[in-house]
Design a protein around this nucleic acid. Structure first.
Lengths: 151, 151
DNA sequence: TTTACTGCAAAGTGTTTGCAGACTA
DNA sequence: TAGTCTGCAAACACTTTGCAGTAAA
């Protein structure tokens, strides 16, 4: 499934007259494998680890490009950096950010905020086109009471 | 009411052994009069307008201080800057950010996200302690169809 | 061969830190 | 007077821009 997605992405890009360069495909690989949204500095570091050093300028430009193609979307995790993740499937989802260990998990809200956004339209005459909703707190592991050291 | 709030804030600060300096009270004034969350650069500019120039270092330190006192809270409006607003009353609320004209209005969600956060606790064993929810779209004015020039 | 893409250097924001001096209580 | 608060300068992290060269199709 992941492979197929990568393939589809590449084909779409090519069909639109864009090139599948080393930097671009490396970034797509990273995004496809990522478990949580990544910031530009994280991406730069990850590229370095993979022995595919890409200049930061290129990374920033590539992020802008992938955004313009609707391939990735921007996420804000309140740490002062912009994070990005694949927007594949178009399934809008949210994140659970652990304040202690920093892990980020994705979460779907089955009904979304439709109810709230339509209420907003009614009461404020404001046409909501998008929203940001992220949750912060303690993940399962971190909220678990100290258990006796069984090890 | 606003005046009372300002007074209460000052008294609380003094009672806690803090000082009510020019910079601090000017910032409180600005926050009390503000219609929407302000970023540090905006605050610096506003202080300048009021002929009360305050060094940016002081502004940043003051924001940190006011945060530590629970007087202001941090808001993220996705523009790369941190924004701040009074947290008075403790009433948690959200914002409607217009993508065209940039205006920000506040909005209360009567029931909040209690339903969602308790669902998250159940399904993900994640203890939500806070969340970020901001709406983006078109405000009443900007979404209004072009009306014939009546002027 | 064309031109989308890349890297380097430099500059632009927003924010933080160290330190000596200033002012509130 | 004491200790909080302030300004200045410099550094920092992240991001953007100009330009000349490289490489994908």
């Amino acid at each position: 499934m992941t492979l197929k997605t990568a393939h589809v992405l590449s084909e779409n890009l090519r069909a639109a007259g864009h090139r599948l360069t080393k930097a671009r495909s490396a970034l797509l690989d990273i995004f496809l494998a990522a478990a949580s949204p990544l910031s530009a500095p994280q991406l730069i570091a990850e590229l370095g680890k993979r022995k595919l050093p890409v200049n930061k300028t290129t990374v920033y430009r590539e992020l802008e490009f992938l955004m313009s193609q609707g391939i990735i979307r921007q996420i804000d995790l309140l740490d002062g950096r912009k994070h990005y993740e694949l927007s594949s499937g178009g399934a809008h989802h949210h994140h659970l950010v652990c304040n202690r260990c920093g892990t980020v998990q994705c979460i779907d809200l089955p009904r979304g905020l439709d109810r709230i956004t339509s209420a907003i339209k009614r009461t404020h005459a404001f046409e909501v086109t998008s929203h940001v909703l992220e949750f912060f707190g303690l993940c399962q592991r971190c909220s678990r009471p100290q258990r006796p050291k069984t090890k």
